[in-house]
Amino acid sequence: MSNKIYPIGIQSFEKIRRNGYFYIDKTALIYRLVKTGSYYFLSRPRRFGKSLLISTLEAYFSGVRALFEGLALEQLEKEWKKHPVLHLDLNIGKYDAPHSLDDILNKALLEWEAIYGTGNSRFGIYSLGFPNREVEEGFIRFLMPFYTRVNKAEAPFEIQKFVREIENGQPDAFFRRLQSFFADTPYELISDLELHYQNVLFIIFKLVGFYTEAEYHTSEGRIDLILKTEKYVYVMEFKLEGIAEEALRQIEEKHYALPFESDFRQLFKIGVNFSNRARNIERWIVK
């Protein structure tokens, strides 16, 4: 009779193998799963072995052959290449505060950055990119039309125009084009008008690959939007039913542009006012 202990409640493949727990070898099925498919959604209930399966896949893709000694996969796999593995476990958090999920995600991103060097510590962002062309096109073709009047066919061409204007330091041309984007926006899409406009700008800039940050914190307040390109830095402040001069004055009085004044890139300070009645940009000032 075997003296091995059953691994009740243990979800770590490494722990099971290194500590000699009882393990039923299903690694041949894992080999088939990896070699015959690309994407999987596991719709099984709790306690069905999903976490252990993921842990086993992590060990496999990490190339830890020693853990598979004596198992079917040891013989089936001939190359044992080590791959980057991004394993995100959402079971580890209590989620008892609004920032709980953000903390878990940020911790995971920092760990991945330390291992793979994929982060940009200068700007505090992570460049994971789109997993494939279909997802990228999905953002451009479907998310953009949801927020604007531009249809799916026009969206990629409009994005190209935005890119040229921002990269060439032409904020006036950009905002004139943006006015046409906001025109005829369906009323039912807007509950918080100022937030809606801010979201549209953020989405546009993100889609075209610019470094973008909303609600950027400084010692004297929060900047509504920061945009950085190779040659320019844009500091934007928005007002709803105010005046563009007031938005620009806030940038000046609260020194929002101070963190970027030593940057080699040309700096634009832009105050923008949105009109509730016109449901569009009423006026903007560029300095």
Rank of each mutant, 00 (worst) to 15 (best):
Y40D: 10
G93P: 04
I30C: 04
T27G: 00
R47D: 15
L73V: 08
L57W: 01
E69S: 10
E58K: 15
G37W: 07
K81D: 07
L33D: 05
Y39C: 08
H83P: 06
R47V: 08
Y31W: 13
G93Y: 05
R47I: 11
V34L: 08
H87R: 15
K81G: 09
H83A: 09
V85I: 12
S55Q: 02
L57S: 00
F41W: 07
E58P: 00
E77K: 11
F68G: 01
A59V: 03
L42T: 13
T56Q: 00
G49I: 02
W80F: 10
E74A: 14
T56I: 00
D25G: 03
T36P: 04
D96A: 12
V64E: 06
R65G: 05
T27C: 02
P84S: 10
K81W: 06
H87I: 10
S55F: 03
Q75N: 11
Y95V: 11
R65P: 06
V34N: 03
L88R: 12
I54K: 10
L53S: 01
I54L: 15
K50L: 09
H87W: 15
T56Y: 00
K26D: 02
E74Q: 13
F48N: 11
D96S: 11
A97R: 15
F48M: 06
P84W: 02
E69F: 04
K78L: 15
E74R: 08
E79K: 15
A72I: 00
P45Q: 09
P84C: 09
P84F: 03
G70Q: 08
L76K: 02
L42M: 13
Y60E: 01
L33P: 04
K35S: 10
S43L: 13
F61M: 04
L88G: 07
K94F: 12
